[in-house]
Design a binder for these strands. Structure first.
Lengths: 119, 119
DNA sequence: TGTTTGGTTAAGCATGCACTTAACTATTCT
DNA sequence: AGAATAGTTAAGTGCATGCTTAACCAAACA
């Protein structure tokens, strides 16, 4: 049973490697084959296969084989899942800073006033 | 000399660990001390220190010590850097899908028409 | 002043990760 | 059929990671 923590673990681990990000970068510009992705990386084909397995495992990339060539493509739904996690934390924190700012403002003015959140 | 690739490596590596994400999660709800963060994690204090070092190293968290207690806080600017990387790739890919969709539409209709991108 | 509290350093350990080479399979080209 | 192409599997290596315990320091408290 794989929970969301597990899923994020895999996702961010996948994104933590420069070669894998380069592969994602390449795929963001269009579908491509395994050896095509390997070319600019300067590593062996088996190494690329292993990266691909990791990217597929966390859902960032899908692939299908036709003839002897395997074509890979990016899945942006998975990408946005990681994006959302970051976004939520950032938003939460920023809201907190806003509230703190207001509180300090009220305190420093040293007279009671309405405490509605600004629009 | 540390380039942007290095920076993203560190950032995503930092985010790849569940305990560190839990620490970030905690910090997104307000500044807190080291032992305060350790409490819900069920790991030793030195372990938390090491996670903290990693989070500070990539700029996600800052801390200052006053008296004997060290207070940590989240830096959302760093968070949004990772967010942007993801966003750019996703956007690029989606635009590509849009263009592909249009191309298929034009092809299937089998008559020449204007090929402007839809607003 | 002695003790608790909060944090820090150092050393060691098990596991995981990125990569390699070698050997093999299956498709396509000549 | 034979050679070249595209990918795949297996095994091994070196280094990084996450954690631990033990020992230690300094601020706050009784």
């Amino acid at each position: 049973m794989l929970n969301q923590t597990d899923q994020l673990d895999r996702m961010f681990t996948a994104l933590a490697d420069g070669n894998r990000r380069a592969m994602i970068d390449r795929l963001s510009r269009g579908d491509t084959s395994v050896s095509d992705m390997a070319a600019p990386l300067g590593i062996s084909l088996p190494a690329v296969m292993q990266h691909l397995a990791i990217l597929e495992d966390c859902g960032l990339v899908t692939s299908r084989k036709v003839g002897r060539v395997r074509t890979c493509s990016l899945d942006t739904a998975a990408l946005s899942q990681a994006e959302q996690w970051l976004n939520q934390r950032r938003e939460y924190w920023n809201q907190r800073l806003d509230r703190l700012g207001e509180m300090l403002l009220e305190t420093s003015s040293e007279k009671p006033q309405n405490r509605e959140t600004k629009k």
